[in-house]
Design a protein around this nucleic acid. Structure first.
Lengths: 257, 257
DNA sequence: TTGTGATGTTACATTGTGTGTAACACTATT
DNA sequence: AATAGTGTTACACACAATGTAACATCACAA
């Protein structure tokens, strides 16, 4: 009801909905007490308790020795099951691995989740100094390599997605709306996006689009690395490696380039 | 109410409970239609639909192009979150990896979930012919390397856990109750379990216990390999490698050997 | 000591939400 | 045409989920 589809609100069943909220809150900050959870959720303790009990019995939640609530084994199982069900992750996982080892830097796949970029898969190299990535982390769309997720959308949609003011994250973040639109056009033209310290000062990042069957951009494949050890030649290499890999994934999803 | 704790039934909230069932059913067999899900769950279509809609809106469920229901991105996020929250998995993941690479065979961690063994983490080597492992898969406790999960329990508890008849899976499965009890005592004495084709004809498997703070067996660490390429000397090596690794994990969990 | 303010837990009446029954529109069979 | 599948919607009733309230602990401080 905001952007795109979103199924009918009237079909939402409240208790289930709050149960999901509890699950997400436990995920966000594990080990919380009942009271803490209830407070953070704005729910009563009693309601929260019953949710937790229900899910504890099904192993979706498990308690630590200190009584704190954590996610349970069932979630573990669901999680691995999900990664084999979601076509994108299933297809991309092996690619991500070989790609990451070739570049020896952190690689991520991000999708656009409404007005934010969401990391759904990652690879981190084994070297000591590396960019840290977290599956589930959200980032604004207007900064860094996430811009690639905007670049191929209609101006109309972009306008609705972008917040009124573009938050400055580092000195290099683009906060001017028309400057951003110009940059997006540039990205669309060249087919990739290179960001120099737009999100974190010392990092550079390269991203390329992954296409769906219909030619729309489904996700972004990107590499992030410390600036000091990344030369122009590395960036060029990253661009071509990423582009190749992304094409492979896109084709696997039915895209015909 | 059956074995061990299990929190009070009266605190279970029905709609949430069935929602969780839906989630598990989707996980078990992805891509199902509404009708199919409802049928398998023994619920009405209408009820099932509302559950799905609620969870779809929160991205716990997502639909494929053909309308089939799959697990959604939120589950992906929860899943990776869970694996960093559950101490055992968190501790074991890196160990599993190095261990697996050393042995170049499939390694798993299993816990006892009521009357079954449940795989909660795995490593598969990159060689072509390898044992396939699935996180979330359940196996009977009386066959193969899962026996290690029984070996350290009280006779009393074992008796309650074991089914009335021990199913034969292969020709080597122990189906005689007293023979099994003797074997368990043997395992407890030597501290590891070697299984020759008790679950799959051509496979051998070695398992060792992971101990909790209180000295009880929390989980099993095991390796499975094709029999034809596994010599006696390999088995010996596996035993010592696994034992070392398991000790490391156990210590990490507060156990003092 | 006693008090205050946290916890987690239980009980119970009320209401509103989740539920089942029923009916609808489609499509693909026969 | 007719049947048997889909997925979806509408609605009234019953009961499940909820909020209010009370209780048992515990910790810290007065």
């Amino acid at each position: 009801m905001f952007l795109e589809s979103v199924t009918d609100k009237k079909y939402v069943i409240q208790s289930v909905d709050t149960a999901l909220s509890v699950l997400l809150e436990v995920s966000r900050e594990p080990g919380q007490s009942l009271s803490s959870l209830a407070r953070n959720l704005g729910e009563t303790k009693q309601k929260t308790l019953r949710m937790l009990r229900t899910m504890e019995q099904r192993k979706f939640i498990q308690r630590a020795e200190d009584g704190g609530y954590n996610l349970g084994n069932a979630i573990l199982v669901l999680g691995t099951s999900a990664s084999t069900q979601i076509d994108l992750v299933k297809l991309a996982s092996p690619v991500l691995e070989t790609l990451g080892q070739k570049m020896n830097e952190t690689v991520q796949i991000r999708i656009r989740d409404n007005t934010e970029a969401l990391c759904i898969a990652k690879f981190e190299p084994s070297r000591d100094l590396r960019v840290h990535a977290v599956v589930g982390r959200r980032r604004p769309l207007h900064a860094g390599s996430s811009k690639i997720l905007l670049a191929f959308l209609s101006d109309n949609l972009i306008a609705r997605i972008l917040p009124d003011t573009l938050n400055r994250i580092t000195g290099n973040t683009i906060t001017n709306r028309s400057a951003l639109m110009r940059e997006l056009m540039n990205i669309r033209k060249q087919g990739f996006c290179i960001s120099h310290g737009e999100v974190s000062d010392q990092l550079v990042s390269v991203s390329v689009p992954i296409f769906a069957v219909d030619g729309s951009v489904l996700a972004a494949l990107n590499v992030a690395a410390p600036a000091f050890r990344t030369q122009k030649s590395d960036l060029d290499r990253f661009v071509s490696l990423l582009t190749e890999a992304a094409k492979g994934i896109s084709r696997g999803l039915g895209w015909v380039g």
